[in-house]
Design a protein around this nucleic acid. Sequence first.
DNA 1: CTGAAAGCGCTAACAG
DNA 2: CTGTTAGCGCTTTCAG
Lengths: 335, 335
Amino acid sequence: MSTARDVAKFAGVSIATVSRVMNFPEAVKPITRAKVEAAMLALNFRPNQMARALATNRSGVIAILVDYVGGGYYSMLLDALEQKARQRGFQTIIRCGNSNADDIYRSVKQLSGGQCDAIVACVPFMKENELKQLLQLQPNTVFMNCVSTAYRQHAIVVDNQLGTTLALENLYQHGHRCIGIMTGVEDNVENIERLSAVKAWFEKKALRFSDKWLISGNFCAENARHAIHQLLNQAPELTALFCFNDQMALGVMSYLQQQGEQLPERLSIIGFDNTEACAFTHPTLTSVEQPIQEMAHRAMNIIENMLNERSLQEQLPLVPSLINRHSVASLSKSM
Amino acid sequence: MSTARDVAKFAGVSIATVSRVMNFPEAVKPITRAKVEAAMLALNFRPNQMARALATNRSGVIAILVDYVGGGYYSMLLDALEQKARQRGFQTIIRCGNSNADDIYRSVKQLSGGQCDAIVACVPFMKENELKQLLQLQPNTVFMNCVSTAYRQHAIVVDNQLGTTLALENLYQHGHRCIGIMTGVEDNVENIERLSAVKAWFEKKALRFSDKWLISGNFCAENARHAIHQLLNQAPELTALFCFNDQMALGVMSYLQQQGEQLPERLSIIGFDNTEACAFTHPTLTSVEQPIQEMAHRAMNIIENMLNERSLQEQLPLVPSLINRHSVASLSKSM
DNA sequence: CTGAAAGCGCTAACAG
DNA sequence: CTGTTAGCGCTTTCAG
């Protein structure tokens, strides 16, 4: 592999000039520049990013930390982040396998040794004090889908209260009063927010809410099958179900259909995330959409501000919207 | 951020000793080592990976190049690769947005500047001569799902002929003789292999195969909806369909069900990849599974051999299997 | 506009 | 077992 020194020798210039051609081409006389560029081509020169990073203390890469890369919501988010980062001249690298705070710490320790300039951490499972530790390891961090009171400048989050209300209100307007709730992972902050929004909504509506209407599906399709079975056993009066993510809604739908139930007649269902699969179920799935593009955009704004040592603004929760499809039946019609 | 020099000063040793504690702890007297480790802790020392990589010419990271990270097959593959790489002490980074040869070249040029030791490139769209170029840019490359005659030592691929045969044979045994084929992206080498396997199978069975039974869905669910509409128009005699990936099968199923068709009665369907969604459709989807774990395992073997400058063995195609579910009806029964 | 030289933080001989 | 020292390949003053 040829180095800048080789190029310099070949072009008959100094190594500093080679560096300038890479970084400030306008600062080099066109004719010299041409010689250098020719040499680069001839020697198939590719600058060593590690050396460059070491010298400048900048790598140009943003690391994204997630749990699984697969399916659902995060894969969409990752693609959005990659695209926005690229637009601003950053490379992105994704590290998966970060399912708890310790995984995150380990990853961050490695990555913050110069391997990246900033981190986007998808850490809905982290508590306030853990976020603090994370920021100590790497100040240039953005938390995605992470509710935080102390670090609002670093945290991008959707208005879960609104998302929840949109879903419940839609079911309500279709005549549903007995609405089941399938929650996700217990200490996931988004889960917590959505759950408390559910309770607030029922109170505001002065509707009875029974704890029997509540069940956990752990955000995962397979668990949702068992969960819905149990839920309908313990609360057969339910006519609708709000799932805290689409994966679970998918599990529920497939389970019920395997039991020979008609959807949405037997149960109206709304999911959360508006993943691609929503359009390809039968019936298609109504779901709450998170504004992924805007989230990715904000993440990059925060990062640029951090890297330029500008002060950060507090982030307001972003506005989700309900995407109406065919998984909700009007109660009057089906009765 | 503290450096090895700081640690050395703090511990009252030389910087070389600090380095040894990191790399060959046994080579340092326990008492010295303890002092150094204490200093590291006290100073919150994290070695600069870039400096280390520069000095050793090894980064410990494997880069994985894919197109989209989302949904289907690749997200499963990515998780498998990450896991296997981690087991062998490598970090992985994923770069998405590589949908053609030029994207790949650009990524590889950047990454091979010391940022990674090896690359796993998911490049079913690349031709033999493009693979050659890629290997010139970065010799330590593994091609995933990539048919190649010249670079078999670098290419991990599933036996597409067998996979295709398994699917068609299953339909045949359920009595189907008029079998539609939904292909993927035209110049995708896996697509090409599967298509020629289809034709070979029909010939071997001495069954008529009409070109009207063939349609492209571009590997994507949305396209599959239009494709199936057209296909059944031009060939209403079809009783079964083999889709070259699951995404398209999903699109087909949802479209037909929206048209009020019964599945699998109207059309028996088999997909390819056995993605997670297969278990959550209704009916559940029979699909050809690629041995992802084994593929990831082999990729890491090849990489270790390359990095240790051992000679590479030619890779034989891996063996896929058919996962039977409920999307295939017996023709006798449904008639 | 260009060159010389001093690092960036770490590793790896080589001495001792 | 430990310290000294010369790089790894690039950037960045500072002179000229």
